[in-house]
Structures are given as C-alpha cells and as structure tokens.
C-alpha cells in the first residue's frame, strides 16, 4: 500500500517543492532588502517586483555549459554540490512547518542534534567541493570555510542547548510546542548569541571571509560553472533558510500562533513563514551595516568571546531553569 499523503508531504508540501520555493523567495527577499538598505531598488524586471529573479538565475545556470577543470578531482568536484544540497533539504525535512515535520508528527528525541550534524556535514561537503576544484582561490576559500565552521559549530551547539534545557527536550517539535512564552523572552541573551553565531555559520557579513571577493575572487565557487554552480548557490540559500528556521523553532515559538477558522496547517505555515521572514530581515540587516572582519579576527572572536559567552549562557540557563522559571511558568 502506498501512502500518498507521505509522498505528497515529501515531494510537495512541506517537503521538496515548498522548501525550494521558500528558498528562492528568501533569496529574492534578501536581495531586495539589501538593495533597499543601499538606496537601490534591487531586482525589478523578472516577474512582478523581480520576484522571479532567483528562479531566472537558477534556470540560466542550469542551461550553461558545464566545465570541469583538468586539474580538478573529478568525482568530488561533480557530486559534492548536489550531495550538499540534498543533505540540507533532508535536514530541513525534520523542521515542523505546519505543526508537524515532513517525516513524522513529533520527530524523535534528539533530532535537534541530528539536524545540526547534517548541517555540519553539508558544510564539510562544501569545503570538499572547493578543495576538489584545485584552484588556489578555491582552496583557500574552502580552507576558510572549514576553519570557520569548525570554530563556530561549538558555540552554536552550546547555545542551541539553551532552549532545549528550558523545554527539557532535545526534540525540535517538543521545543517548539512547549513555547507558551517564546524563549526569546525567557532567554534573550541566548537569542542574540544564536543570531551572531548563525551569521558566522552562514558566512554572512561581517563573517563572510570565505567569500571575500577582494581577496579570493569567487572563493570556493571560483571554478564552478553551470548546474554545479546553481546547486552551490542553492545550497547556500537553503542553509540561510534552514538557519533562520532553526531560530524560529528554538526561540520564536515555532509555527505556533493564533488559529482562526479551523485550518490549523494553513495558519501554522503562515506563522512559520512570517517569523522566518522576520529573522531573514534581521540577518540581512546585520549583513548590510557591518564591514567584513579579517579571518584572524573572526577566529579569535569565536574562541575569546563567543565560546565563553555560550558557556555562561548555558550555565545561566541551567540556573534559571532550576530556580527561577518554575516560579514564572
């Protein structure tokens, strides 16, 4: 017996198609916000308000000639972008969008750790992709990706544990559904730290050293063309959406919100997307108002400031969960 609902959920909503459309939409949003903050108008002519711009870019890249450089490690060079993209989409499937994630209603205990691990693997594949291109800029760019995400993964995991402690569960669905008061109000410091770490993990300004055009040309993407480049771009965009979705689930109460006239899945999706867009706006704003750090400043910032702060945040949370929150909630 074939479970059509499951197939629909995986392929269309809230699975692959939804994720793809959401990603392209967020990409357009980012470009638009950036343009508006810089006194420009941004994409205008592809579709109404330029909303189809990311789609046009994607299709165009798919139809371009696909070049594999002679020196490149062919297998890794060819497959790394696609595999990274697949893993990111798979990780996204664990995030409850319409009140339930794609695969199961409540996920399982510990899926928070699993999806963070998936995100790390995807990052590692991106590093491999750059490394396999055997281009000096690509190699240096990917080496920077590696150093950066290895460093920032530790505080990211530690800070992600804060909401887990408050909710008393490592399952994302439970964490999201237990936020009667959104955790941003209970642990605002953790929210701020998480946004900063996320920014670094997603390699956005002021932490976008792996993409420093003035030093590294195209970074790890330098040698990529055509469809492979399209999937590299798409992986990046899914990462951004995934990171923002994580913020929504952990701190902003997940997809939950007021439900009118029954159809809860519709309202949950709406709340989820709206909250997601708020987070995207915040991160894009940060991107626009700062200059890029230097790689050594990025790394020392992590070990000297962010890691101790994450540990403190965790200790504070444990203390609060033990003695204070029981009085409030």
């Amino acid at each position: 017996m074939i479970d059509f609902t499951l197939i629909f959920r995986i392929l269309v909503f809230p699975g692959f198609t939804f994720i793809l459309l959401l990603t392209l939409f967020c990409d357009w949003m980012e470009r638009k916000i950036e343009a508006r903050l810089q006194n420009r108008v941004g994409p205008m002519v592809a579709g109404p308000g330029g909303i189809l711009q990311p789609l046009a870019d994607f299709i165009k890249l798919l139809t371009k000639e696909d070049i594999t450089p002679r020196e490149a490690k062919k297998t890794v060079f060819k497959f790394a972008p696609l595999v990274a993209f697949t893993i990111m989409v798979f990780a996204f499937c664990f995030i409850p969008v319409d009140g339930a994630s794609v695969l199961s209603v409540n996920g399982f205990s510990g899926d928070l750790i699993v999806i963070l691990a998936f995100a790390t693997i995807a990052n590692f594949l991106l590093f491999l992709a750059g490394w396999a291109s055997c281009n000096p800029y690509g190699t240096i760019g990917s080496a920077r990706v590696l150093t950066q995400f290895l460093g920032y993964d530790i505080p990211l995991f530690l800070i992600a544990l804060t909401p887990a402690f408050i909710a008393g569960s490592l399952s994302i669905a439970t964490i999201a559904s237990s936020q009667v008061i959104p955790f941003i109000l209970l642990a605002p410091w953790a929210f701020v730290l998480f946004i900063i770490t996320m920014q670094a993990e997603l390699e956005k300004d002021p932490f976008d050293v792996p993409h420093a055009e003035s030093e590294l040309v195209g970074g790890l993407e330098t040698e990529y063309t055509g469809a492979k480049l399209a999937f590299l771009h798409l992986t990046r965009d899914v990462q951004v959406v995934f990171g923002s979705a994580l913020v929504v689930e952990l701190f902003l109460g997940g997809p939950y919100g007021p439900v009118f006239f029954g159809a809860s899945w519709f309202w949950y999706t709406l709340w989820f997307v709206l909250k997601l867009l708020v987070v995207v706006t915040i991160t894009e704003y940060i991107t626009c108002v700062f200059a890029r750090f230097r790689i050594d400043q990025v790394l020392s910032g992590n070990w000297r400031i962010l890691l101790p702060a994450a540990l403190l945040s965790l200790m504070l949370t444990v203390a609060l969960v033990t003695w204070v929150y029981p009085l409030v909630v």
Partner: peptide, 16 residues
C-alpha cells in the same frame, strides 16, 4: 543606475 534591476550582477570569476 542600479543594474541589478535587470538582474545584472558583476561576477568576480570568468567561470560565472
């Protein structure tokens, strides 16, 4: 002038 309106992007690498 903002050519991003037309989807024009200045790319760093000839491959793109």
């Amino acid at each position: 002038y903002d050519v991003e309106r037309f989807g024009v992007k200045l790319e760093p690498s000839p491959r793109h």
